[in-house]
Design a protein around this nucleic acid. Structure first.
Lengths: 196, 196
DNA sequence: TTTCTTTCTTAACATACATCAATGCGCAAC
DNA sequence: GTTGCGCATTGATGTATGTTAAGAAAGAAA
């Protein structure tokens, strides 16, 4: 069996997953490679998969009426990215999911996860925890957007995603923080002056 | 059996819930009354319940370091309000949950929901849908905060929660939208001028 | 190397929204 | 009725961030 990151992801979080179920899982998943810049999903498509990032870096973002990009989230290796709205509610997606670097992605059909959940209680609990965790993180971000300045949000980003910071262009970080790239540049300059 | 709103909430969303399980459920829940202004939860307490609003109106909010309030959400009759972070992860809460009007609330222990989920697949799916829906709504709000002006956010609020708008002071709506009460007042004035 | 392209920085100016302070309005208590 | 209190409005002013436009750096391509 190939040494997938997903294997580690599952076995270290779910008890009672044997090699057999894992092999079954991988049989039903396809492994896809994307060049940096390519899209996994675009608006109005139906998202049919969860994407587990084996290698590389994905980004989910929206474009508003004024033509501006807003990054929903980043996902580096070892992360699971989905457009839950589209997958769960079978609605056309509102988002782009794009490979920022050359990436290798495991395409997982929701059915496969459902089947796994049915036969393994521990996986089901894990799945539930993923959801709860997602909610926690979204609420944290809302709080930040409501209460923190651009600088505070940037500092929080550095602290939370130091690895990602180094791998994506500043412009994209700016669209995640909800500020103009020029403003981010200013924020960084201010911080540099302060610390010296 | 008393005619609870929660009964409707459950039977209209979950198939195969019989009166027996409902009675068992209600046996394990307590019904509490709160005066307008009273707190169900305050920061640093451990939230041990889900709150189903039978009557009245609840609000969940945080106070940031600068002393400003930020409303996370409102919950009128027929809504379920929880501090998921505190309940699920057994952490002290960061939030206030307050009765805005005189309210009657069913206090539900998470264990009770878990037990119900174990014996009823349909309830489990419903519970899952609640989570997915919550995520959808939070993402929608993040998008709004990232992309929309104060006026646009207010218009969205009116459209989405017309009933709530009439029941809470403007100050609280402002803390939900993430703007100063004075700004909300001006937004409203502008809209009034436009439409006339 | 040189060229071309993308990203980042900087500065001048514009704008949305916050803050502060004063006034007005509705409503309960007396 | 009058008083007092909470909430909404309004105006003057401040500030953070957006916008526009130009140039500098850093990579990629040739």
């Amino acid at each position: 069996m190939k040494n997938f990151r997903l294997t580690t992801f599952l076995t270290s979080n779910v008890t009672g997953i044997d090699n057999e179920s894992l092999n079954l899982l991988f049989d039903k998943c396809s492994l896809k490679k994307y060049k940096g810049g390519e899209y996994l999903i675009q608006p109005d498509e139906n998202c049919q998969h969860s994407f587990f990032v084996e290698k590389g870096l994905l980004r989910q973002y929206a474009i508003d009426k004024k033509g501006k990009e807003h990054t929903i989230q980043f996902a580096p290796e070892g992360w699971l990215m989905t457009d839950r709205e589209s997958v769960f509610f079978s609605e056309p997606s509102k988002y782009y999911i794009q490979a920022i670097e050359d990436s290798t992605v495991l395409m997982i059909e929701p059915k496969v996860f459902e089947a796994l959940a049915k036969e393994n209680k521990s996986f089901q609990r894990f799945n539930n925890r993923l959801l709860q965790n997602h909610i926690r993180q979204l609420q944290y971000r809302i709080n930040l957007l409501l209460s923190a300045t651009a600088e505070e949000r940037y500092l929080d980003f550095i602290k939370t995603y130091p690895d990602i910071l180094l791998r994506v262009p500043q412009t994209m970080v700016a669209t995640y923080l909800g500020i103009a790239p020029e403003s981010l540049s200013r924020v960084r300059k201010n911080l540099a002056n302060k610390s010296s």
